[in-house]
Simulated assay, not measured.
Amino acid sequence: MTHAAALPRLRALIAPAIATLVALAILVTLGTWQLQRKAWKEGLIAQIEARSHGEPGSIQREAQWSSWRASDDEFRRVRLTGTFLNQFETPVYGLAPAQRGSPLQGFYLMTPLRLADGAIVMINRGFVPTELRDPKARPNSQPQGEVSVTGLVRAPEARNTFTPADDPAKNSWFTRDPEAIAKAHGLTRVAPFLIDADATSNPGGWPKGGQTRLDLPNDHLQYAFTWFGIALTLIGVFGVFAWRRIKGAQGS
């Protein structure tokens, strides 16, 4: 085949080459993004490790609550003293790890803690299984008088597309959201964050605190290798395809 006759076959490579370059750019971008996510996750893990251990400090002052940011304060270990408003105990549906088998279904108990100055901080006191949702089923589980709580500062739980709507009238909740819970109970001067109580034993054994997950998964390097691997495979497939087209054009 003459040079002029081979040109149509070579031109036929233009569209596949463009498609390959576009797909390659997307795959490399995804791989690079996963590496960036890996660096971000490692920073977050290091931040959690540094903040969640050591001697507990104090919570942020009420005057600073309007400018509170999770990135500056979340997972910090703190201790605070106050009185539980047990009449406003709010069960929030959730799952807890089980020793064997599937996670346990139950509730995380959100209870307002009134500080000495009258401000309120929501405390996630811990987990109870479904059959212990009613306080009457767990006698002595609601401390009276002044108490001290040690735990980790947490941001309000984020809601996603699959989260059912809360129903305050039925005391049915699916997100640990201090502002929404406070509004339902007519409470004011409430902190924009909550405290996940540590594993210190509660009277009667319930609720079980210390449920904060600190071992965040970090599989981003694996994902990055996957995207880069697909990119290399794509290059190889297109290379073989183009080589066969070119050889076919030369041999005709």
Rank of each mutant, 00 (worst) to 15 (best):
M1D: 01
T2L: 11
H3I: 12
A5R: 15
I14E: 04
I18H: 00
L27G: 05
V28M: 12
V28P: 03
T32Y: 15
Q34T: 09
Q36S: 12
K38M: 13
K38N: 15
W40T: 09
G43N: 15
I45R: 11
I48C: 07
I48K: 07
H53E: 15
H53D: 14
G54Q: 12
G54H: 13
S58F: 08
S58W: 03
Q60C: 00
E62T: 08
A63Q: 10
W65F: 12
S67Q: 15
A70P: 05
A70M: 02
D72S: 14
E74T: 14
R77T: 10
R77A: 12
R79C: 07
R79Q: 14
T83F: 00
L85D: 02
Y93E: 11
G94M: 04
A96K: 05
P97D: 13
A98H: 08
P103V: 09
Q105P: 00
L109W: 05
L109I: 10
L109R: 02
M110D: 02
M110A: 08
P112A: 06
L113I: 06
R114S: 02
L115V: 08
L115H: 07
A116E: 13
A116M: 06
D117H: 09
I120Q: 00
I120Y: 01
V121C: 06
N124G: 06
R125P: 02
G126R: 01
P129L: 07
E131V: 10
R133G: 05
R133H: 07
K136D: 13
S141I: 03
S141K: 05
Q142R: 08
P143A: 06
Q144T: 10
G145N: 08
V147F: 04
S148P: 02
V149N: 05
V153T: 09
R159P: 03
T161M: 07
T163M: 11
P164F: 10
D166S: 11
P168N: 10
N171T: 07
N171K: 05
S172G: 01
T175F: 01
E179F: 03
E179H: 07
A180E: 03
I181Y: 05
I181N: 01
A182W: 05
H185T: 03
H185R: 14
H185S: 05
G186N: 03
G186C: 04
G186F: 00
T188N: 10
V190S: 04
L194A: 02
A197T: 03
A197E: 03
A197G: 05
S201N: 13
G204E: 08
W206V: 02
P217H: 12
P217T: 09
Q222F: 11
Y223T: 04
F225W: 14
T226N: 09
G229E: 09
L232W: 14
L232G: 11
T233M: 15
I235L: 14
G236M: 07
V237H: 09
A242F: 10
W243Y: 15
R244D: 12
